[in-house]
Design a protein around this nucleic acid. Sequence first.
DNA 1: CTTCTAATTTGCAGAGGTTGCAGATTAGCT
DNA 2: AGCTAATCTGCAACCTCTGCAAATTAGAAG
Lengths: 157, 157
Amino acid sequence: MLAPADLTRHFRARGLKVTPQRQLLFKLLHDNATHPTAEALFATASAMMPGISLRTVYQTLNDLAAMGELQVLQSGNGATRFDPNVSEHHHALCDRCGELHDVYVEAVDELHVRNLDGFVIDRAGIVFGGLCAPCQSALAKKSQRNKNCITNKELPQ
Amino acid sequence: MLAPADLTRHFRARGLKVTPQRQLLFKLLHDNATHPTAEALFATASAMMPGISLRTVYQTLNDLAAMGELQVLQSGNGATRFDPNVSEHHHALCDRCGELHDVYVEAVDELHVRNLDGFVIDRAGIVFGGLCAPCQSALAKKSQRNKNCITNKELPQ
DNA sequence: CTTCTAATTTGCAGAGGTTGCAGATTAGCT
DNA sequence: AGCTAATCTGCAACCTCTGCAAATTAGAAG
């Protein structure tokens, strides 16, 4: 996504107005790698500008997405996530904490796809599943703790 | 997804009951390549078994997904789609008609992923975007028809 | 600086999609 | 045939997101 100052210019050029609400959202999104949902942005924005409406957050996110300044992601469980990183990249979704990480994949266009049946591919989106580093150590500790535990079979009925 | 008879066995083995409603859904899903939504399945099921509840459809779909017999897909626009094809495959989503096609991709594990930062990948899901064959010809015809139309610039102000 | 107008903000109602709950029903074991 | 836990159904509720209309405001023009 462009820097706030550039977005301001782009918005005006398109006949869109640059309100304080929008400026705040521009700032909150700039260099934000958390893939926030509309609700999450609303929570942060509300703390800095009490009274801002959730409706306005959605409105601005949709405007930005329409201008190609945001990548829209379907997180799987309900809420849409917005990614200000619009360079060509993909995502890694942690099975444990649910967080999404940006990853870069080489030679995606060189993949050999079968069964296309006349479908013409324009782009690709990859979501990797697995465990992020913090969650791996968390799980390792947990299994360590459970090493000496009795199993279900050993429990009295 | 397994054949209805096998699913019946698996359900019973897990202490789950096999009701007429579930048997119907097993049949409707078997070899179904349409990636139906819960609503779509409900519509088909209702025609064959009037009175079946949408709630039951969701229930059974969730059970099947939990058993790994269905792949769950986020279609992008709202409704979840269910795919009885659980072999390793990916999807091609048509920008025009919104339909999903199963495709097979080779050497996905050989992709070179950067910026993993300790994330350990377990699996990958790829969604290709583009146009399916029918939609390409439809669009081609449309642009043919528009060839002799005046452009906006030529319109009187 | 004032005026004007179209764009924006807000709050609320409402549309999907999905789940929780409770009472009635039923699969399938004994 | 009887029993009990699993299931079905209908409905209410939830969540995310959008439509709408009245009030406000950005920013251009005078």
